[in-house]
């Protein structure tokens, strides 16, 4: 199964180190491949360096692509984390 969804980074600091760490930890719970794409750049959600190098600031639009047996759950969790500002206050 393969899913694709447009998401926006809403937390103030963007995809900073701790946010990336949370995303990687979340992504690692799934078998599926999880990729974040921003224009021509693409990062594996299981690689913290890749995510950090996307340098996605607040307001950045990303395409999340999940593919694999648990792609649906993976998408739900990733979407939840991003929309909840990585559990940060702002």
């Amino acid at each position: 199964m393969k899913l694709q969804r447009e998401l926006q980074i809403v937390n103030r600091l963007g995809l900073h180190a701790r946010a990336c760490a949370k995303l990687v930890k979340t992504a690692n719970q799934f078998e599926s491949d999880i990729v974040l794409r921003q224009n021509e750049h693409q990062a594996d959600a299981k690689s913290i360096m890749g995510l950090m190098m996307l340098a996605a600031t607040q307001g950045t639009r990303l395409t999340v692509i999940t593919s694999g047996a648990d792609a649906e759950d993976a998408m739900t969790q990733v979407q939840h984390l991003i929309n909840n500002r990585f559990e940060e206050d702002e």
Binding site: A17, R18, A21, K25, I48, M49, G50
Partner: peptide
Amino acid sequence: PETSAFIDVHLLMLDDPVI
């Protein structure tokens, strides 16, 4: 409280294929 989270970041970086 963030200290542990920062160490997490470093642990994940350490496991990243790039490093």
